[in-house]
């Protein structure tokens, strides 16, 4: 059944996006045109959305990584086991929250903060979405890097301490370099998650189909789909273009997540951390 579902989805994606690829063709990626599916002379440039998706997600992971790894180090090396377990369970719970709640909080806290403190007319922007994504990715990054840190500590910490070397030096020079491959793997997996995030991003990014700037509005592919799906007609080129955009997204996702899983399996195979 799982295979069947996958088959169905792939079949549908290809079947439905085919008209767009055939008819619009290079227009899908024409940097000079715009995304104007509803005008009398429609154009379907999905390039801004692709770039925005990549950019926002990258921003999210880039913010989440230092905070996530820092938290994992802090909890593993400087907080007592039991307290750390308690805090970790809280951070874990964050992962269980629906993304709408994140979107809601992002809107009433982040976006409003941007408006009042940075003097922006609308606080909805790429940066807000990036920060929000970072918060959503934190539980995942904290828990994976906490696990790797525990393994690395078990393997290397005493050997280094026994040489009369301080804990801090060991963390910076041995433990963190030792887990960098593991971090790369979780970077890829986290990036994959960020790429597909729909609701939270959609609620704070402003949704304008233009090229992304840090403090400007933009629109990601999932957000575009979620917003315009309700108003498309069945069999229209518009729907097909949406499908095409999602096919592009899925191809990117497959590459990113595939690399992530591949790295993870390779690490496991060679008993690295």
């Amino acid at each position: 059944m799982a295979v069947l579902t996958m088959g169905l989805i792939i079949f549908y994606l290809i079947e439905s996006s085919l008209p767009a690829f055939l008819e619009i063709n290079a227009g899908l990626f024409d940097p000079d045109s715009e995304w104007r599916p509803r005008s009398a002379n429609p154009s379907y440039n999905i390039l801004p959305m692709i770039l925005a998706t990549l950019f926002v997600s990258f921003l999210g992971v880039a913010i989440a990584l230092p905070f996530g790894i820092g938290t994992a180090v802090f909890l593993n090396f400087y907080v007592r086991r039991k307290i750390a377990a308690f805090i970790l369970s809280f951070i874990d719970m964050l992962a269980g929250l629906p993304s709408v709640i994140f979107g809601f909080l992002g809107l009433v806290l982040l976006v409003r903060w941007f408006e009042t403190n940075l003097g922006m007319t609308t606080g909805e922007c790429v940066l807000a979405a990036g920060i929000l994504l970072a918060v959503m990715l934190l539980p995942y990054i904290v828990s994976t890097s906490y696990e790797s840190l525990q393994k690395a500590e078990k393997r290397y910490m005493y050997a280094s301490l026994a040489m009369g070397i301080s804990k801090e030096h060991t963390i910076m020079k041995v433990i963190l370099p030792a887990i960098k491959k593991g971090i790369l793997a979780s970077f890829m997996l986290a990036y994959g998650r960020a790429l597909g995030e729909t609701m939270a991003v959609m609620m704070v990014i402003g949704n304008s189909p233009i090229y992304p700037r840090l403090f400007g509005r933009a629109q990601t592919i999932p957000a575009l789909t979620a917003l315009e799906l309700g108003s498309v007609e069945y069999g229209s080129l518009h729907l097909s273009a949406l499908y095409a955009a999602n096919v592009v997204l899925i191809v990117i996702l497959a590459i990113v997540l595939g690399t992530g899983y591949f790295l993870q399996r390779k690490l496991k195979k060679y008993d690295e951390i």
Binding site: R155, Y156, Y158, A159, S160, L161, A162, M163, G164, I165, S166, K173, V174, P177, A178, E272
Partner: peptide, 28 residues
């Protein structure tokens, strides 16, 4: 740190740091 510099220790499982051979030595 001074104590442990004066007393070296070798563990049951051979532990090498994930560096080059040379860097394993220059580390300390």
């Amino acid at each position: 740190e001074k104590l442990r510099k004066a007393i070296g220790m070798v563990f049951q499982e051979p532990i090498v740091f994930p560096f080059s051979i040379e860097k394993n030595l220059t580390y300390g």
